[in-house]
Design a binder for these strands. Structure first.
Lengths: 342, 342
DNA sequence: AAGCTCAGATAAAGCGGTTAAGTTGGGCCG
DNA sequence: CGGCCCAACTTAACCGCTTTATCTGAGCTT
């Protein structure tokens, strides 16, 4: 029969020291001589000891986990590659420290807020990662009030003490528009994401500004809910106009692929009659024919960096981290070309 | 300043009872009268009390979490919609009970095994969910030895005491092959998944058997690593033969989409010259043109059911659960048709 | 040699719950 | 009316680890 889980008391007995000494030794803090430390570590190793998580948490009031709470319809998780990337990226960063990732998917923002409160009150996690910051995000003040470490993926954020890690979407959007303008496009439609998202707004702002800079004839941003169906509907609508755009920028690859499908269905050739650019890259964008020109970024790496910053923040809650990760890069593929008649 | 987190001691004092009574009341177990219970609950509610997770775990030796450990290259997580579906499905089932899902992504099977051991030793979780059972899966005996509740997603499993929840892949594959045969296909290639996976083997077996049953001229299963690139390479190879197949069944939608791309690139028309069927459905399969005929199933619902079963198992570890979920269903779309010259 | 300091260890008090083992007092029985 | 039982509570131990005193003795000072 397997021996019961050893505790530090067992180690202490076997090593002939006190529980306290064992704790000091195992945590690498002063209070024991080097020699005793080595002896204790040897015994612990020999007995195959592992700290009991709950006991440790109770003792030092660290949960050893951080929370990620998503309020999107659950099925979105499987659809948007973004989530998988973020989750595995976060996980990688946290794992370096032995910290776990607790995931919760809820249906609405109220449930999300409730979960922040509950998990904080239960000391279930040491901090949170927030996705998709909104323009006037009600979660920010609430979380500030909870006085819990938070790392927002997105930004930059003003008017909040919360930490964030951002990528320069504006710059990336500039690059995209400059590229299209250089190709000779003057009628550009932007199929955007949810208008309340901060990054959606920033992208739309760049577009408005770009219109003047490049003396474009038309630049419109149309907000959506990120679904493939809205992407398709809007594409169908703008391609049905007499004065149709020669280029469309999509805020997600799912919408871009849906849009491409509509173009095919309507006999609009890509890229001859229409250029398509996706502000989001993934396998999806590469598997289509033609493959989609996209703004690509290392989402996973970004999330890993953010996770590390969050761990720093948890270690020292007085910090406010403002971290910037690399700017998305334009990867030209087959879906963009100069407009016909150019 | 915010009042410190209330503990049951605070509640006890305020309600004029002992800590024990409070614990009984809050957990709905006998030992207090209905009236006292109500009073205690009222006080707890008023003080906005939440149980401290670690304390509770230490007391009743339940971690209140289950683990999901994946050993796949981290990027796969973002690529395969399957994972997102499973994660959100599990999460939904566990949430009903307030149980959390701990996720870990590791690079290789050794690290996966190490994590099972560590998490069990640390009492970090109460049980595990296993994905992708292998034919002679070394994880099974190891986990049996650890004496920890486990629910395998896949099966059916023999020679193990582990519980599992399965969907009848064989039956589904039958349906797919019958359909193709009925359309008139006699040369069918199966671009399979990893050969060591149990479900890959079962699908391949069905195909072999189907060959005789339907008197097909050719039926080949070609194992792959599930990557889009292998899917493409193999498709290119089989389509280059003089005697090319008239239908290809892919074990994942990612490979199916990649295969469709190759067909387009080679001027092979789908479905006129080639029928494509995907043994896996997701947005991906629906967004392509033509949309892919696929075997579809409610992965998320399956995971939710499995999660519930795992909770039962944790409550009563003597159980061995054998749960069957619904069989995948064939959804004909545009990528399948009778072969040319039929 | 008395007085200090300080490293190296011990003992014991938590941390916030759960739970086994008492302790009451009222109702019911013969 | 004494004896018993049982529901309703209380006490206190315990879960496994951390952490804050507290203790001890060797080495230095003066």
């Amino acid at each position: 029969m397997p021996m019961a889980r050893p505790t530090i008391a067992d180690i202490a007995e076997r090593a002939g020291v006190s529980k306290g000494a064992v704790s000091f030794a195992l945590n690498g803090r002063p209070g024991v001589s080097e020699e005793t430390r080595r002896r204790i570590l040897a015994v612990a190793d020999e007995m195959n000891w592992r700290p009991h998580r709950a006991a440790r948490s109770l003792g030092n009031s660290r949960a050893g986990a951080v929370g990620l709470i998503l309020s999107r319809p659950a099925r979105t998780l499987g659809l948007e590659p973004f989530f998988g990337q973020v989750v595995s990226g976060l996980q990688a960063g946290l794992a370096e420290d032995g910290t776990a990732l607790q995931l919760l998917v809820v249906e609405d923002p109220e449930a999300e807020m409730a979960a922040y409160r509950t998990w904080t009150a239960e000391k279930r996690v040491d901090g949170f990662v927030l996705l998709d910051p909104l323009i006037e995000d009600p979660r920010f003040p609430a979380l500030e009030a909870l006085e819990v470490p938070v790392m927002v993926l997105g930004g930059p954020l003003a008017d909040t003490s919360l930490s964030f890690s951002w990528a320069d979407d504006s710059e990336a959007m500039h690059e995209a528009v400059d590229y299209l303008a250089a190709l000779g496009h003057r009628h550009v439609v932007h199929v955007a994401g949810m208008p309340q998202f901060l990054h959606t707004k920033r992208r739309m702002d760049v577009l408005t500004e770009a219109k003047e800079r490049h003396e474009l004839a038309e630049v419109v941003s149309i907000p959506t809910d990120y679904s493939d169906s809205e992407g398709a509907v809007i594409t169908r609508r703008v391609l049905s106009r007499r004065d149709r755009p020669t280029a469309i920028v999509y805020d997600s690859d799912v919408m871009a692929v849906a849009g491409l499908g509509v173009a095919l269905e309507m006999g609009v050739r890509v890229p001859q009659d229409l250029s398509i650019l996706s502000f989001d890259d993934s396998l999806l964008a590469r598997l289509t024919h033609p493959a989609l020109t996209a703004l690509t970024r290392d989402t996973q790496g970004w999330a890993t960096e953010a996770a590390r910053e969050l761990l720093r923040l948890i270690a020292d809650p007085t910090l406010t981290v403002r971290h910037q990760s690399s700017t998305p890069v334009l990867v030209p593929r087959e879906s963009t070309a100069p407009p016909a008649g150019q």
